[in-house]
Amino acid sequence: MSILYVLIPLALLLLGFAVWAFFWAVGSGQFDDLDTPAVRIIMDDDSKPDENDQP
């Protein structure tokens, strides 16, 4: 069980990194728009192939 004394602080270190990364992402404006990305994915450019491509 004494391994926990190492693993838990390690986990907290990772947690701290995750929080720092998220704060940075929020600060750089990546989360300013929470509405569009959900829609954008379903509007991918899947236009039909050109007629020239067909034999």
Binding site: I8, A11, L12, L15, A18, V19, F22, F23, V26, G27, G29, F31, D32
Partner: peptide, 25 residues
């Protein structure tokens, strides 16, 4: 509004990550 949302998001993240960790312990 942008500033408010950014701060709120950070608070939400701190609360949710903190909650998950503490619940685990």
């Amino acid at each position: 509004e942008v500033t408010e949302q950014r701060t709120a998001l950070k608070r939400l993240l701190v609360a949710s990550l903190g909650m998950m960790q503490v619940m685990m312990f």
